[in-house]
């Protein structure tokens, strides 16, 4: 299955208003290029969760976001600066979830759902689990040191197959 390439890209400040606009645009592009399918929201949820994380933890002025259809995959990339502890925690959590089996991911998701605690910035601790659960097994996080020793540039890439 080969889809027409399409791309949604954004570089700039990320606020709740911008996130809503990006989400609307993503919905229109996904619908136009992929058609109505029962997993459309599931596919787009990966981008929304990555944007949520970026909004919570971004310490810089801008983020980079892109959503592309490449062959039979959707590739979502988000880059943002983050405090060292947040960046390292993100990387550790992604590595930990990727090492789990599908059953372990499902159980971890349920356990985290029942945990009534939220992070300081409103995170439920479910985002990474949800991304991987919804098909984003191909999830990479790169951390690049910045000129500020307490910050990293976090580069997240998630590739999801469009083939059921």
């Amino acid at each position: 299955m080969t889809m027409n390439p399409s791309i949604l890209g954004y570089d700039g400040r990320l606020s709740s208003d911008v996130r809503v606009q990006l989400t609307d645009l993503l919905a229109a592009i996904a619908l136009a290029n992929l058609g109505k399918r029962t997993d459309l929201r599931k596919l787009c949820s990966i981008a929304i969760e990555l944007l949520d994380n970026a909004q919570r933890h971004c310490t810089g002025d801008t983020i980079h976001f892109s959503w592309r259809i490449v062959g039979s995959d959707v590739v979502v990339s988000v880059q943002n600066r983050a405090q060292g502890q947040d960046a390292l925690r993100l990387k550790a959590q992604v590595d930990s979830v990727l090492a789990m089996t599908n059953d372990e991911i499902t159980e971890a998701f349920k356990a985290q759902m029942m945990n009534p605690e939220f992070g300081e910035k409103g995170g439920a601790g479910l985002g990474i689990l949800q991304i991987v659960k919804k098909g984003g097994k191909n999830y990479e996080v790169e951390l690049e040191p910045t000129d500020n020793h307490n910050e990293y540039l976090c580069k997240s890439h998630v590739k999801t197959s469009l083939v059921a």
Binding site: S45, E49, D52, Q112, M113, F118, A124, L126, G127
Partner: peptide, 8 residues
């Protein structure tokens, strides 16, 4: 639609 923070 709801995000994961809303899910909990």
């Amino acid at each position: 639609y709801y995000n994961s923070s809303s899910n909990k």
